[in-house]
């Protein structure tokens, strides 16, 4: 009664477990503007879904969650389409380059090692930086400072200020050269291709700290960009690898679309620094889990090909 069979994973699963997982990841998606692939794929593998099917089907469900989340944020005026398109173009170009890098690394061997170490380092750096910065920001907000501080422009700010074709991004309220989001989108694309994820958890900190976009616009714009990335990944995986399990994706997306809406509403009630601390905590927990997995003796020395 509560079981459902997945035709591509060739595995029977409990209905409430899959819908519950979808809701959890949808909630994160709506709250933080991340696709949640970095969390969902390991959870699906833990309940017995083959890794390749887990990753591909997760992309499919993120299409629905990010479509639903993008729409909700669009209604709230939180999507900077202009910025999103620049990031997307950079992401597609970077992703294509990243796939080629992975091909070369696989031929040289040790690609898996590089992928996992990249994960741990990126998650550790991004999570720690966000956590410390948000904590400091929350503390300083409590102190009442009446004297306006003279802020010295950083080297980075001066550098991007010198770039050509400075354009105003109205929704984000910033002036930037399109070169910046194109290059940063490209860097995220390369990393996402190497790590095999949508890249939301790297893109969000980049938008906040390097593009200086307001947190609520970051979430909506990130979801917009993720939507297109995951459409591309779903079609490619279905066509090349036949690993998209539509039944699994449908069950996940029933939970995730509801979760995304709840998350979008919650994100409005929380302060930007609180949101950042929550996301930083999740990123750090995943990093620690991965690091422990790399250091402890595995239960089985064999794992199915294509797995972790």
């Amino acid at each position: 009664m509560w079981h459902i069979y997945l035709p591509i994973a060739q595995h029977s699963v409990l209905l409430p477990v899959i819908i519950g997982l979808g809701f959890l990841v949808g909630l994160l998606s709506g709250l933080f503007g991340v696709g949640g692939g970095f969390l969902m794929t390991p959870l699906l593998i833990m309940i017995g879904i083959p890794p390749t099917v887990a990753a591909a089907s997760d992309s499919n469900q993120i299409v629905a969650a990010s479509a639903s989340g993008t729409y909700a944020h669009y209604r709230l005026g939180n999507v900077d389409f202009k910025m999103g398109i620049y990031l997307l173009i950079g992401g597609v170009l970077g992703g294509t380059g990243g796939v080629q890098i992975i091909k070369v690394l696989r031929q040289l061997g040790n690609a898996d090692f590089l992928i996992q170490i990249t994960y741990v380092v990126m998650l550790g750096v991004v999570g720690s930086y966000m956590f410390v910065e948000s904590l400091q920001s929350l503390r300083s907000a409590k102190r009442v400072d009446t004297t306006p501080a003279k802020q010295k422009q950083s080297v980075y700010a001066r550098l991007i200020g010198c770039l050509p074709s400075q354009t105003r991004f109205n929704r984000s309220g910033i002036v930037l050269s399109p070169v910046v989001p194109l290059v940063l989108g490209g860097v995220v694309g390369i990393l996402a291709a190497i790590m095999g994820v949508g890249g939301g958890f790297i893109m969000v900190p980049i938008m906040v700290y390097l593009l200086r976009m307001p947190m609520h616009v970051v979430v909506g714009t990130s979801l917009f960009q993720i939507l297109f990335t995951c459409i591309n990944v779903t079609i490619m995986q279905a066509y090349s690898n036949r690993t998209v399990d539509f039944v699994l994706a449908l069950l996940l997306l029933v939970g995730s679309t509801i979760g995304a809406q709840v998350g979008a509403k919650l994100s409005k009630r929380l302060k930007a620094d609180q949101l950042k601390i929550f996301l930083a905590s999740i990123v750090l927990i995943v990093m620690v889990k991965m690091l422990v997995g790399l250091l402890l003796h595995p239960h089985f020395l064999l794992s199915y090909y294509g797995g972790d």
């Binding site: 499919n60 079609i235 490619m236 995986q237 998209v244 679309t257």
Partner: peptide, 19 residues
């Protein structure tokens, strides 16, 4: 290919309806 496109279209539809 048809399967992959169908997966995306249905996901978009469900996402939009839920929205």
């Amino acid at each position: 290919l048809i399967y992959g496109i169908l997966c995306v279209v249905i996901a978009l539809f469900v996402g939009a309806v839920m929205g």
